[in-house]
Simulated scan of single mutants.
Amino acid sequence: MATYTLEHPDKGLITYTDKKRYLWLISMLMPAFPLMGVAVFYQTGIQWTLALPLAVNYLILPFVDYLVGSDVNNPPEELVPQLEADNYYRILTMLTVPLHFIVLAVMAYVVGTNDLSPWMVLVMAIIAGGYSGLGINTAHELGHKQTALEQLMAKIALAVPAYGHFCVEHNRGHHVLVATPDDPASARLGESIYAFTLREIPGTFVRGWNLEKTRLNKQGKATWSTDNNILQSYLMSLVLQGTLVYLFGWIMLPFLAVHNFWAWYQLTSANYIEHYGLLRKKNDNGRYERCQPHHSWNANYIMSNLALFHLQRHSDHHANPIRRYQSLRNFDDIPELPNGYYGMYLLAYIPWLWFRVMDKRVLALPHINGDLSKVNILPSKVKATYALYGQGQEIPQ
């Protein structure tokens, strides 16, 4: 276990040991978890065993998060440069990329070479899509980094879920307008995840495409060209998924259609819970205040963070986008989710229950303290929200 040290002129010897150093292997191996269900299926011949990864994600992991609890430990800031220079951590993210390809190929093989029921083909597509959705998380970590290799690996990872516009849109769109009414990837109070999906998926694609088009036009290059980062990734998706159709037949068309949508929906689910109801102040000059930790919902739950490269320490990520996962920090008095992401996804899929749990949490945040003018509210729900929670507050015109 590596220990980082620094002799500080004022604080003396500072030391830090990342006790989770080798536990981060869980994040690397998480995309391969569906192979467990495949192995059990080939041992027993029982089709429902293929669904075991669904139970692990949506039942066991939230329960383990509840039992194990949170980790609020932060590395000393003085040692963060050493921690981020340790290549071990970035190697883990890059080794994860080929696993996404391998797992999709194996899942396609199982569907294409076995007489599965239509329901089990659907389940397999959802499982494959859920774990390919982790490819977007892998690309998220890699795509924020400032090395050409990591950015290339991000582009390759996005080929698996066929979401090649993500890094362009996320880095240059979402991070600029996060927690504002102008961001299609920031959910509004009173907005169900299903309404959000219809706004977020097409909205982010259009924004990503326009951002890349603008970049290329400024360089005097054609939008429809090999210089287009989005098209590069989508071309890899076409080759990958076209090969699967060629190898395993037409059953791949519905399988991949569901796979792709469910992979996208995992990102949509994450975006929905990460900024729900949160709002950055608009200054007199028309620009929004700088993104602060309290503009994102955080989750310090140990197990799900170990499965997601610390994605759930989202508050620090948005305040410091290029900071690597191993050095992301917890802060006091920031929005904190009551469970890890998979538990919150289940809650979000039942809108009335989500609103009941989360709306009051939004209003109780210290920086909001019941002031609805500081909340990002769905426009069609403004009057109803003020009537329910406003207590005499004036509805903005």
Rank of each mutant, 00 (worst) to 15 (best):
D316F: 04
Y301P: 09
S327I: 09
H314N: 05
T268A: 12
A299K: 11
D333P: 09
E274L: 05
S327P: 03
L347F: 09
Y272W: 03
L308P: 08
Q312N: 13
R287G: 15
Q266M: 14
K281G: 01
S296Y: 02
T268N: 13
G277Y: 02
Q312D: 11
N339E: 13
I334M: 04
M344I: 10
Y342A: 15
K282E: 01
A270N: 12
H317N: 06
H310T: 15
Y272I: 11
M303D: 05
E274C: 08
S269M: 12
D284M: 11
Y301G: 13
R324M: 11
Y325N: 08
N305K: 09
S304D: 04
H317I: 03
D333E: 12
E274N: 13
D316T: 04
N330F: 02
T268C: 14
S296N: 09
I273Q: 14
I322Q: 11
Y288A: 06
D333V: 07
D284G: 11
K282W: 02
N305R: 07
Q312M: 12
M344F: 06
H294T: 02
R329D: 12
H318F: 00
A348L: 06
N285R: 00
G277V: 10
L279R: 14
L337S: 11
F309I: 10
Y341E: 05
K281H: 06
N305P: 04
H317K: 05
N339D: 12
P293F: 02
H318N: 00
P338E: 02
N300K: 15
L328C: 07
L278V: 07
A319M: 03
C291Q: 12
A270W: 08
Y272V: 10
N298R: 12
Y325V: 07
L347N: 04
Y276R: 00
L278W: 03
C291S: 15
I334L: 00
D316G: 03
R290G: 02
G340M: 06
L347G: 01
P293I: 01
R323A: 01
N298W: 03
R324G: 07
M344A: 06
N320S: 11
I273F: 15
Y345A: 13
L279V: 06
G340K: 00
R287E: 15
H275Y: 06
H310M: 14
G277N: 09
M344G: 09
R313C: 00
K281I: 02
L337N: 10
S269Y: 13
G277C: 04
A319H: 04
Y341W: 14
